[in-house]
Amino acid sequence: MNGALVTFRKELLSYFVSPVSWVIAFVFYAWRGYELSSLSRYFAATNGDPDVFVSATYSRPSTFWMVILVPAILTMRCFAEERRTGSMEMLMTAPVKDSGVVVGKWGAAAAFYALLWLPTALSLHVLEYGPFLGTDLSFGPVFAAYLGMFLLSAMVLSFGCFASSLTDNVLLAALLSILFAFGLITLPQQLPAQLGELGQNYYVRELLDKFDVMRNFSEWFARGLIDTSQVAFYISGIAFFLFLTVVSVASRRVA
């Protein structure tokens, strides 16, 4: 526990002092701000439904950038960089459990990621005033949607940690993570058509439906509904990839 907490603090500090983190934040806020102001002006001009506005904000390109690319950038250095520079030896010979190190690193990435999203919730509040929407937004769906987005990204972050533990090449780690996130978002919708008859099989469709994170997100979280089975799916996914990361890190001792 101590090892996880100490690692968490150190890693979180590293994110804050890294120029890459600030570039990510700047690009995201500028891009997101532009998207939201354009969208709100459009809704104000067309007297659009404010609830539709909230769900519409999640289908903007910056959201995909945040789910596919940013987790990969945040986690690519987790273990790959430690191995490349040799600091892994210092970490692994400290009196701390491998699981503590893994949880601490993932926790810091997830916390920094959540902090990146936080100001965008405040910006939604600002949009309620003046020349933008000029109406109150329902913040129940906003909270649920942020939770859904965070759980999905936290799972991608846990895979990113795992990918980073497999190699000492940070770019390869990032690429693996991007492929995973891209596959998770697109494959469940694309595969049935590609699989032909097998894609129409009841069990295959059921399985793919469970993994269809975008559909589940728009049907549940974006509407302000929190389904415990969805939450359990993401938490299981996070635990699974963190477990794989611990195994991968521990196996390096054997090498």
């Binding site: 090892g3 690692t7 890294s18 520079t85 040799g86 600091s87 009196p95």
Partner: peptide, 24 residues
Amino acid sequence: PENVPIYPELRVVEYLRYRAALKG
């Protein structure tokens, strides 16, 4: 270790505080 790999972004005292905490 033979080659001392230390996080370059930390100050010396910060690094040692981190290591002290890690070592319990």
